[in-house]
Design a binder for these strands. Sequence first.
DNA 1: GGAAATTTGTTCGTATGTATA
DNA 2: TTATACATACGAACAAATTTC
Lengths: 90, 90
Amino acid sequence: MTDHDGPRFPPRGRRLVWVMLADEIAARIEDGTYPPESRLPAETEFTAEFGCSRESVRRAVKELRRRGLIETVPGKGSFVLPPEERHPQA
Amino acid sequence: MTDHDGPRFPPRGRRLVWVMLADEIAARIEDGTYPPESRLPAETEFTAEFGCSRESVRRAVKELRRRGLIETVPGKGSFVLPPEERHPQA
DNA sequence: GGAAATTTGTTCGTATGTATA
DNA sequence: TTATACATACGAACAAATTTC
C-alpha cells in the first residue's frame, strides 16, 4: 500500500487497492486493533495512512459493509459490529 | 514517455484552490490582518469570501496547521499561534 | 437548566482531469 | 474502449463540541 514509486496501477498479479485495504482493515478488526463498537478512522485518515485516494477508501469501506463487519452512520463514522450482529450481504 | 513529464495534476498553468487559500491566509497572518491569538474567520465565511467549497477551505486550514501557523479547536475555531509557539510539522 | 446558534468533524454523492493497463 | 486509480473540487446533510441567550 505504500509502494507508490512505480505505476499507480496494480501490476500484473497484484490485487486491487480497495481489496487490499478492505482486507487490511478486516484483519485489524479480527485482531482487535479496531474492537467491537469502536469507530474506524475517518476516510481522510485512511487516505493519509495508506497513501491512496478517498475513492479507494470508500470502496473498501463499502466492501466491509457488504461483508457485514461494520456499519456506517452518516456524519458520525463507521463502526465495528460485534460478531453476533454481523450479517454479511451476498 | 512523450511530453508528459510534468506533474500529472493540476493541468499546466493552474494553481490549486487550497494552496492559493493557504498562501493568502498565511499572508494575512504575516501582515497582522489576523494577529496572534485571534480567531480566524469560520470555514463558512472563507467559502463565502473566496467563492470556493468548504472542502478546499478545510484543506487550506489543514495546511496552515501543518505549517504550524494555527491550531484548531472543534466547536470553537482556528486560532493564530504566536510566533514562539509555532511548531511546523514535516 | 435548556434551547438555539455557531463551528468544526465526518460522511455521502457527484464531477472532472490525468494516467495506466 | 473500458476499468482502475489518484488528485482535486463542488454541494449537501448530519453529528459533536462550544458558545450564547
